[in-house]
């Protein structure tokens, strides 16, 4: 168990180093950082001075070491567009993105599991067919189209919900939350659903497939042969066995949700990290792009690690064997 965790942690660090190299290469080699920072009329001498002050004349390996050292202390340089430290910009916007991602995931999990279980148990009912159709549409409609459709319906036509922004937020320390005000909650609804819809589809399909698979297993057949009630079989045995892989996937997907928030945040002008990233790509603001990549990777890697460890706790088979098997 400990060896397993350690192995996974080392893998995670390996991935972060690889991402660090990519982020550094972007920062250093994709375009000249000095050109991005100064105006057209800056003289050669001034450029050289800036170059020296940024340490761009040092050997590449030294620069990389400095970059990684800074990144480990969450220092990612200064944004070209805003002339502000990237870290401050990201931290300011992180609560918005995390709140959105968490709400979307909760929405996706609850509705996805319910719909998946229902369509596995009542495979040929009309409602199951509707769920299947919805899931296909959920996969086929690009996120931004769903967002636009919802805005048109609920903001433009019905006027029920705000079409952009977070509403009123409350400051709790450095964290800002929209969960404590009515306008904040109202502003959360459409972006959460838009962002969560794809995950919901995924979870629904997964739950359905897993549940059908589990219902075919010998231990379910044996449970039926033992005369257990349908309820005990479906919601005790089958659901529990279904949820183990589902929770793993849903957990792993949380990183993707944060990355997908890029699109949702753009559609709803949600002031999160994703919107910042999109603006950075449009304006070639490399420090923000690099920092965003590092941050998202860190979240990814952490979640992967946590899910791996959680998995061994949920599944008793792994608890005792994992340590030995590896």
């Amino acid at each position: 168990m400990l060896a397993f965790t350690l192995r996974r942690a080392i893998q995670a660090i390996g991935v972060m180093i690889a991402v660090g190299i990519i982020a550094f290469s972007m920062f250093r080699f994709a375009g000249d950082p000095v050109n991005q920072m100064v105006g057209m009329d800056t003289s050669g001498a001034e450029r050289a001075a800036i170059r020296k002050s940024l340490g761009l004349d040092d050997p590449v390996i030294v620069q990389f070491g400095r970059y990684v050292g800074d990144a480990a202390r969450f220092k990612f340089g200064v944004s070209y567009q805003f002339r502000l430290p990237v870290t401050n910009l990201l931290m300011e916007r992180m609560p918005a993105t995390l709140e959105l991602a968490i709400c979307a995931t909760i929405f996706a999990m609850i509705s996805g599991i319910l719909m998946g279980v229902y369509s596995a148990l009542h495979r040929d009912s009309w409602l199951a067919h509707i769920f299947q159709a919805v899931s296909l549409i959920g996969i086929s409609l690009p996120t931004f189209l769903i967002g636009i459709l919802m805005i048109y319906l609920f903001s433009v036509t019905l006027g029920w919900l705000p079409s952009f922004g977070r509403g009123d937020v409350v400051h709790i320390g450095w964290w800002t939350t929209g969960l404590l005000t009515l306008s904040g909650l109202k502003a959360l609804i459409m972006p959460s659903i838009t962002l969560g819809l794809f995950q919901m589809t995924l979870i629904m399909r997964l739950v359905r497939a897993e549940m059908l698979e589990v219902l075919r297993t010998d231990y379910i057949r044996f449970a039926r042969a033992r005369g257990l009630t349908t309820r005990a079989i479906h919601f005790g045995h089958a659901l529990r066995n279904t949820l183990v892989p589902v929770i793993t996937v849903a957990g792993l997907q949380f990183g993707s949700v944060i990355a997908f928030a890029i699109i949702t945040e753009t559609v709803f002008q949600w002031p999160g990290m994703g919107l910042l990233f999109v603006q950075a790509v449009q304006n070639v603001d490399i420090p923000i792009m690099a920092a965003y990549l590092m941050m998202v990777s860190l979240i990814f890697v952490t979640i992967n690690l946590v899910v791996d460890i959680l998995y061994t706790i949920v599944d008793p088979r792994l608890r005792s064997t994992v340590g030995r098997a590896h």
């Binding site: 297993t217 010998d218 231990y219 057949r221 044996f222 449970a223 039926r224 042969a225 033992r226 005369g227 257990l228 009630t229 349908t230 045995h237 529990r240 066995n241 183990v244 599944d315 008793p316 088979r317």
Partner: peptide
């Protein structure tokens, strides 16, 4: 269902897969 398990017991072929692992 009430007959199964109560009045008729069943033993399947593979004990490795007959029990719910969780």
């Amino acid at each position: 269902r009430r007959v199964r398990g109560k009045r008729i017991g069943m033993i399947f072929q593979d004990p490795l897969t007959s029990l719910n692992p969780l």
